[in-house]
Simulated assay, not measured.
Amino acid sequence: MKALLFIETDGEKAIGGSLELISTVKSLDAEGIAIVVGKRSVADTVAAFGIPVIFTDAAEDCDTLTEVLSQIIKEENPDIVLLANTALTKDIAPRVAGRMCLGCVSDVIGMSKADGKVIYTRPAYGGTILEHIEVEGTAVVTVRSGSFPKPEASSNAGVTEKKMEIPDSAVKAKIVDTVKEISEAVNLEEAQVIVSGGRGMGSAENFKLVEELAQVLGGVVGATRPPIEDGWISRAHQVGQSGKIVAPKLYIACGISGATQHTSGMSGSDYIVAINKDEEAPIFEIADVGIVGNVTEILPAMIEEMKNAKEKAK
């Protein structure tokens, strides 16, 4: 079985979700080839994880990347084409699949092999169920960040540079200017610790306890939709179906009931701690540790204990 991996970059380095694709390939015991576009140093970094790399210095716009992937798929004839599930690849994946007449599965969170075929698992109906999909022939698959572990360094598998001719007709749109919105930079997707607050925090003043605990733990602040709509924190912190999909090592849910719209965005976390005064709250169904009580009384105690533990560790 052969798999092509598209390694997306942020202009300087490979994004975490793309690197996880290397572990995906290893879990399937497949032969993998990574595709890196744009920066040679990124290709060298990826090759150090033990996977051969095809590198081209083409532009990184959506139309060009679609053409690059289409050409390499024709040459390599893979069984699977893997991409991290990002805003960019949500455009690229269906384009490539449509152009090449291939199957397409998005937002995959698990893969397994049965009778020589790959079964793709993805959430459906807002994350209320999981569906298992089998594709005849080659499949273009986007994988949710955090579904597989980061790869470990291995022997360098080498980089092959490839010159590619991109016909002018392939580029339908050209970026003439980019205007970046001035907003708070929040990297929820790559965070190892996230402390999130929900409606149960009660007020903007109480929500500061969430921010304080995140600071003490060296983590990032997350939130459900109600605190954002009430103006307690900016939309950049939203976790869930209409926000960011996260998978940290530790996720602490404070005053969050556990609606599907939120849990579908954080259920991949390694360890979940939930604090809620309602012992019947759905969040406890997915939590590793549940604390029933008033979150505004529990958080100050947690913050104090964490500060003491840090002092003792010095």
Rank of each mutant, 00 (worst) to 15 (best):
S112W: 00
I92K: 10
A43T: 02
N85S: 15
A114G: 02
D61M: 03
A58V: 10
A114T: 10
V81T: 04
A87N: 13
D44K: 15
C62K: 10
V118M: 03
L65N: 03
L83P: 03
K117F: 00
P52N: 14
T45P: 00
G116W: 06
T89I: 02
L82T: 08
L88P: 07
A43C: 06
A93L: 07
G110R: 15
G110C: 01
T89Q: 11
D91A: 03
L83W: 06
D61R: 06
A58D: 15
A59K: 11
V81E: 06
V42W: 05
C104M: 11
G103H: 08
S70V: 05
V53G: 03
V81C: 09
K74F: 03
C62E: 12
T64Q: 07
G103C: 11
P94L: 08
E75Y: 00
C101I: 05
G103F: 10
I109K: 14
A59I: 00
V118D: 08
C62R: 11
L83N: 10
R99W: 02
T89Y: 02
A97S: 07
T89H: 08
V81K: 02
L102H: 14
L65H: 01
P94C: 04
D91C: 00
T64H: 01
D91N: 08
C104W: 06
G110M: 04
S112A: 03
L88G: 13
R99H: 03
A43R: 07
N85A: 14
D79Q: 07
D57K: 12
L83T: 01
F49E: 12
A48Q: 13
V46C: 13
Q71R: 10
S112N: 00
T45S: 12
P52D: 15
E60K: 11
M111S: 02
C101S: 15
I72T: 11
G98V: 05
D44F: 13
C62S: 13
R99I: 04
S70K: 09
L88T: 11
V68N: 13
S106Q: 08
S41F: 00
M111K: 09
A48K: 14
K74I: 03
G50M: 08
D79W: 05
P78N: 09
I54T: 12
R99G: 01
A87V: 13
K117S: 02
A47R: 09
C62F: 01
N77C: 02
D79R: 09
L102I: 11
L69R: 10
A114E: 14
T45L: 07
A47I: 01
I109Q: 13
E75T: 00
E67T: 08
T56W: 11
T45A: 14
D107I: 04
A84M: 09
A93H: 05
V46I: 14
G103P: 08
P52E: 12
V68Y: 08
